[in-house]
Design a protein around this nucleic acid. Structure first.
Lengths: 124, 124
DNA sequence: TTTCTTGCAAAGGGTTTGCAAAATA
DNA sequence: TATTTTGCAAACCCTTTGCAAGAAA
């Protein structure tokens, strides 16, 4: 656990926020001005592999990193791209249901809603 | 509706299959050898915007295009990346539930399961 | 010391875009 | 004819990677 990795992890602890790799880079650079973007990418990959953060691939096509590990879903604004958390369920046991109709051994799931955020609703 | 667009749409009609832009390009090229990759990208974008196909951003980070318009979900193998359809629900009314806890006006949702496909289960 | 990680810069892969020519409505 | 779309190629992200120097275990 290097200094860089620790700071990256700390800077990801923003409840309800989801950052691109470059946003993480910008934040971390305020504390470690010499860190490189490559290091940020490498550590985001490692941290998500060991389960300290979550990598999201949402509909907008952007890769986002989420420091929040509690079970929750996401909603993305189709107008401005803003992503917010949606508290999880209770949505029944989705995985059990899927396991009955699929030949896959189900290990997990991701649920993403799309809609229009409060600000964009005003603009309509 | 140009010839290129029509052929692209036709080549996407493979039940249960999900293609990358390049796979679409390869398929279409068998019928229209001079089509360019740019044209494929432009038409996939247009077709998904007008709702004739669906653009998927699954966990693997890959962008896939799906010609199947019936309501269904997807499951992705975490070992080999294979993507299969999962019949939808009945999973209750996910969007109504999300609308109660979110300030967004909910318009839709995508649900992706991850697991291990039949073939990869054998290898374990 | 041995192994892992860093910063740098270059390479890589997928996607988008400007343009003039061609096709469509 | 007016508008849209095409093929081509270059440009454009974003992300990954090779390397030698540096830090961590």
């Amino acid at each position: 656990m290097t200094r860089q990795r620790r700071v990256i992890l700390e800077e990801m602890q923003i409840p309800g926020k989801h950052l691109t790799a470059d946003e993480v880079y910008q934040r971390v650079r305020r504390r470690l001005p010499n860190i490189s973007l490559g290091t940020v990418y490498r550590n985001l990959e490692i941290l998500s592999r060991i389960g300290r953060i979550k990598k999201l691939h949402l509909g907008g096509g952007r890769k986002l990193y989420d420091g929040g590990l509690h079970l929750h879903y996401h909603v993305r604004c189709v107008k401005c791209g803003k992503v917010s958390d949606v508290p999880a369920g209770p949505f029944g046991d989705l995985e059990t249901a899927a396991g009955k109709t699929s030949e896959f051994k189900i290990l997990g799931h991701q649920l993403e809603f799309e809609g229009i955020c409060k600000e964009c609703q005003k603009d309509e």
